[in-house]
Write a protein that binds this DNA or RNA. Structure first.
Lengths: 402, 402
DNA sequence: CTGTTAGCGCATTCAC
DNA sequence: GTGAATGCGCTAACAG
């Protein structure tokens, strides 16, 4: 990876492009899906006249004094060429004379010209917009994914519209419809549980979509994530190997949440395979909040024979569970082992540090971005991507005592 | 405010609007800035034909078999009226006969009609799009704000384009330009440090903008947040009142970050006012990461006379600081008091629980949303909003020993 | 290589 | 109340 080279480049070109360039080699280069624009170069650091502001004006504007928004024609006039040529320059069309190109660029910056995205989109059917619908940004695991997704997209000047469904597939459909109306060219979703209408709408309109946090691709949709059932099994295996017999789980709310449900299923499956009676495995569900974990723990530990090991559907739940133990004087992991999921930054803040299953959130975002940016042909090879899960063993789990 | 009416409407139409409506009374109702559309009602739960998908097609489409995207004219034909009338129905124009209206709605749902946002935007100059530029989504404090901002906007079917600047004002300018090109009708920014070109561009094009996390409004821009200097002073005051004399700070990186800088300045100011020599107050800066806090703490505690109280620019830094103490066998707060900032969920995960200054992130997002949705006239009364800061005293701070 | 000609899909004047 | 006409600003054919 040519880290040094890029840093050099960056310094030469000044600061505004810095980030974009410096991270571009983290992912494959996909030139066709969303080709680069040159307009950026032309109009970025333009100085604007600050004094003319605050003039409210109705739709049809044309007072002579109104230099406000130059249009493509104005640029053409100033550059002494046709609108078509200006358009070509803007779109980086190579077959324009060097001289004209420069005159156009100059005229554009002089006028402070900013292209009208709506007109462009209407005419070209390319909006350079993608959408993402996630459950919430309030959970770090999604925020992190979106962050890297957005970063990847911004490298190609593609903007992202984000909406949150609060784990509700009906709301998701509503938002998907709005995104389609906005003309997004592709959509990222979370998980594989969606209203059939949502998918049908996207497929009918030929809008590619990608699932994240799951590896279950559909016939036409892609999936970039991991196998949640496997994740649950991995957790179970680990606790079993530690010698635990009384094992429980605090899952996330499984309604409309296939990831939470699959993790639980895989977990139970593996335990049952190892001889545990399915009904002997206490499972409670709680929201992804510290308080949820605390409450879940309380419910679990109220049993006559409380579990010696507990798998939590998220680190945040695990943190709440540990907190409950502190309050009740239970020692972790001596009295009870706690296993988390996600490997959020907070996994290092609990006492003891949390053993957890790491979810590759950042990587998912980047790769999902690559998928959304790809051409249809390229997408064929990217339809399914199962990223590895990693068990991060820290101090909240231990072999069963005695 | 016709709150009750709205709720009624919602129930009749099924679940998808529920959440949206149910939280709308947390904020004032602003009807004019972004008026409601009715199109939502008409096309939300439509069933689409899944089988016709995956047909790639060039721009001009018109094969008879291509039912793919019905346009407004098609709806008009099917409803037996003029395009103008369909448009009126879509835009909730009251002067359309009830009979026609229903026929139009039916025709639209039958055809699976979805309006073309670009065309609409081009013609009406209303995109129903706003932008937000934040440093990063990887910091919970921003993710939370964006989450509530997006939630508020979605209640009015306004979409949000998010981009991240990574604390770089040049990158911010670049993104602002792109947002303007996309036609956003308003923009939310973080803090009050921006390139003059950025603001000039927005002002020249008459795009309202609002600062968050600060209360420093500009001549034309609004600010919804809190006073960072005051926040720093509050922190200092608290530690002083606890009797501490050797006080230090681990600030965030202050470059391009007025919030971090102001907090530090306010903090120092108050200490100096109380007789401490400015040069006697150790200040280090670190990234908003646990590791940053740990490193900062190490630097601070290496002094001959280490501080007895430390103010951290963020809870995440404070968590790292506490972690360092654990590792080194230092007791918090006996040996050293740690004061955080933000009141993230993690403030309850440290041992001991973290005393911190609470930042109203969620509320800022909601109110900023209100501002962006408001009409120009309404905005006059919302130009500046200083939200209260609250000191949340927990267990990581104590009076100076002896 | 460059200019000319036509719309993209819709909302908004106006008439009626 | 409703319809007919007219562009919004831009890009894509097609000529030359």
């Amino acid at each position: 990876m040519a880290e040094a080279d890029d840093l050099d480049t960056v310094k030469k070109h000044g600061s505004s492009q810095t980030f974009v360039k410096s991270i571009s080699h983290f992912s494959i280069s996909l030139s066709t899906g969303f080709p680069e624009y040159s307009s950026k170069l032309a109009f970025s650091t333009k100085t604007f006249d600050k004094s003319i502001s605050q003039i409210r004006r109705p739709h049809p504007v044309n007072t002579e004094t109104d230099r406000l928004d130059a249009k493509l024609v104005d640029v053409a006039k100033r550059a002494g060429c046709s609108p078509a040529t200006v358009s070509r320059v803007l779109n980086n069309n190579p077959k324009v004379g060097l001289g004209v190109r420069e005159r156009v660029l100059k005229a554009a910056t002089d006028l402070g010209y900013v292209p009208n995205g709506s007109a462009r989109a209407l005419r070209s059917t390319r909006t350079r917009l993608v959408g993402a619908i996630i459950p919430t940004l309030d959970h770090a695991i999604y925020a992190t994914m979106v962050n890297s997704l957005q970063t990847r997209l911004s490298e190609r000047d593609v903007s992202i519209i984000i909406s949150t469904s609060f784990y509700d597939v009906d709301m998701e459909l509503e938002q998907a419809r709005l995104l389609v109306e906005r003309g997004v060219e592709a959509i990222a979703l979370v998980g594989s549980t969606h209203r059939p209408e949502t998918l049908a709408m996207l497929e009918q309109r030929n809008i590619p979509y990608v699932y994240t946090y799951t590896s279950d691709a559909t016939a036409v949709g892609a999936a970039i994530g991991f196998d949640n059932v496997k994740a649950g099994r991995m957790a179970a295996r680990y606790l079993l190997d530690l010698g635990h017999k009384r094992i429980a789980m605090i899952a996330g709310i499984t309604r409309d949440n296939d990831r939470a449900a699959s993790r639980r299923n895989g977990f139970l499956e593996e335990l049952v395979k190892s001889g545990l009676g399915k009904t002997d495995i206490p499972v409670v569900e709680s929201a992804y909040k510290i308080e949820g974990g605390r409450a879940g723990m309380q419910a679990l530990m109220a049993a006559e024979q409380p579990p010696s090991a507990i798998f939590c559907g998220s680190d945040i739940i695990a943190a709440g569970a540990i907190k409950y133990c502190h309050d009740k004087g239970l020692s972790v992991p001596r009295d009870v082992s706690i296993l988390g999921f996600d490997n959020l930054e907070i996994a290092e803040l609990t006492t003891p540090d949390l053993t957890t299953v790491e979810v590759p959130a950042r990587e998912m975002g980047t790769i999902a971005g690559d998928y959304l940016l790809a051409t249809p042909a390229q997408r064929e090879h990217m339809r399914q991507r199962e990223l590895p899960l990693r068990l991060v063993v820290r101090a909240s789990t231990a072999p069963i005592a005695r």
